[in-house]
Design a protein around this nucleic acid. Structure first.
Length: 261
DNA sequence: ATGGTAGCCTCGCTA
């Protein structure tokens, strides 16, 4: 079972690009983030024609997450538990996805960016990651295969960015942000990419600005976190870096892994 | 120190 995550930075402006990648990569499941559209604006026909079912949690202009799956999904939940009534950001959707040998619970995550630091935006980022931690802990108790995947907006380690010094004042590299991601791992979740490929300086995001892609000034912020019952079946994990070099690219690229489930 | 780009749909915000 091949499962993937990709922050597409507007699904409507990226339909051609996403469809081309779906055809060549043929993932069973894809978590999408930053749809930047409402549910009714989501181009589901384009993906259904390629054989995918769509579970969408959209929002006007900002955020928005989805899960595409070749097999029909069950128990679709378009929210992260624990939010108050003022939190209207569409940043999480979860579903049960069947494989050949078992079922995987998949969460599509778009964590807040949190910049600039020292503002309510950064406080919101940390609060959101804390809510995610609580939910991740509850899912662990079910002892099921779980994959919490998406744009965490956190650079885990110095070797996950081209120049740590350049990110010292950024919300993505603050000690509190990194600790929040680490705390999810300490619950018992595995960073699938790091588990499969310990090579440093492999990135999932390159800014549109300042020639970041051409200079390989990237960061690794899109992650696949696996519960023990999923990690036990992890076969491969990789980043489809070449997608960043195409016409009209997203600033993120797909990350995928294979689970023998 | 600054500015550099992209998307949405406003004259700015988010990333």
């Amino acid at each position: 079972m091949k499962i993937a995550t990709w922050n597409v930075n507007s699904v409507r402006s990226r339909v051609e690009n996403v469809a081309a990648w779906l055809k060549e990569a043929s993932p069973d499941v894809v978590c999408l983030q930053e749809l930047k559209c409402t549910d009714d604006q989501f181009p589901k026909e384009a993906f259904e024609s390629l054989g995918y079912n769509c579970a969408v949690h959209g929002q006007k202009t900002y955020n928005g997450v989805a899960i595409l799956s070749k097999r029909p999904m069950e128990d679709v939940t378009p929210r992260l538990p624990g939010g108050d009534t003022t939190d209207d950001h569409a940043r999480y959707i979860e579903a049960m996805v069947p494989g050949d040998k078992g079922v995987v619970r998949v969460g599509s995550i778009y964590a807040p960016n949190g910049n600039p630091i020292g503002t309510d935006k950064f406080a919101y980022k940390l609060a959101w990651l804390k809510r995610l931690n609580s939910h991740a802990k509850e899912l662990l108790a079910l002892e099921e295969p779980v994959a919490l995947m998406g744009d965490y907006n956190v650079i885990p380690q110095p070797e996950d960015c081209y120049d740590p010094k350049a990110w010292m004042e950024d919300a993505l590299y603050q000690p509190e942000s990194r600790a929040a991601l680490r705390r999810v791992e300490y619950l018992g979740y595995t960073d699938a990419f790091r588990a499969c490929d310990p090579q440093p300086n492999q990135y999932t995001f390159w800014d549109y600005q300042a020639g970041a892609w051409q200079k390989d000034h990237g960061i690794r912020i899109d992650h696949i976190l696996l519960s023990p019952q999923a990690a036990d079946h992890l076969k491969r994990c990789a980043i489809d870096k070449h997608v960043r070099g195409r016409e009209k690219p997203s600033d993120h690229v797909p990350v995928w892994c294979e689970l023998e489930i």
